[in-house]
Amino acid sequence: MAQLSADNHGLRLVVRYTVLGLIALIFVFPLVFMLMSSLKPDAQLLSDTRSLRAFLPVGDISLDNYFDAFRRAPVGLFIFNSVIVTGVTVVLTLFICSAAAFAFVFVDWRGRDLVLTLILATLIVPFETIAIPLLLIASKLPWLGFDGLTYGWLNSYQVQIIPFVADGLTIFLFVQYFKDLPGELIEAARVEGASWWQVYRRVVIPLAGPVLATAAILKFLVMYNQYLWPLMVVQEERYRPVMVGLQYFFQLNRAWGEIMAYLSLITVPVLAFYLFLQRAFIASIASTGVKG
């Protein structure tokens, strides 16, 4: 009986890992195709797509496409811009949304539930519907910078950052996580003399690692993949992010190898960021019961 049960267990494991392996392959294939194609000249790239060679580093392999991509577009500048915009937005989002969620969960104030409901309601408003009004507002806003007081935020980093530093989904993630923290920890800190700021900084944030990682990854993906908004508000090359930069490769002499090289270059930071935070990300998805 025990032998039978052990056999069944083994069989189940084999089936499970086979299925998981197949699913993983399906997800990995496009990435492998992209990386392999980025190493091949266009003619070979196109002919290889008819066979499994498309997924293998065979034939005329070189890094030429990468050098050509850098010649065609200021790839480094685009990546730099995206990293700046994404990085600053992620940091500001984590602070602002966690602080907002803290106020919603731990501080008692009049109208709290109504305000939270309104914020969560914004989740169902598609960005495209507010893009034009937002553009009009952004084009007139004042800004105090190195050049003194100016009006209009178009062609800047702040126009790509500030509209996105708070959002309903991230606040919701933090609210859900904070609600699961034991209330007595917060009360204990209050009794010990901590101010709300000290409770936030010394107790709540150190315990919020998993949700910070989740929110960071989700925000990173949204910001790094921004296309419509920067296309609308940035006309100057020096502020252009990676996704808008992709256009350079679809104008005149379309070269698939260069496109694949460019895509490989801009995908690496995302994968690296995800792998860096993966463990915390999965822990948080499991604990908040929210799908990413």
Binding site: E187, A188, R190, E192, G193, S195
Partner: peptide, 28 residues
């Protein structure tokens, strides 16, 4: 609470899990 000159011990202990015992004791 902080201005009442009180200290409280909770049923669930409510000690901070991310701090050592020393840091917990010294929190206030």
């Amino acid at each position: 609470p902080k201005d009442r000159s009180i200290a409280m011990v909770f049923q669930s202990y409510a000690i901070f899990p991310h701090m050592t015992v020393r840091e917990n004791l010294a929190f206030g």
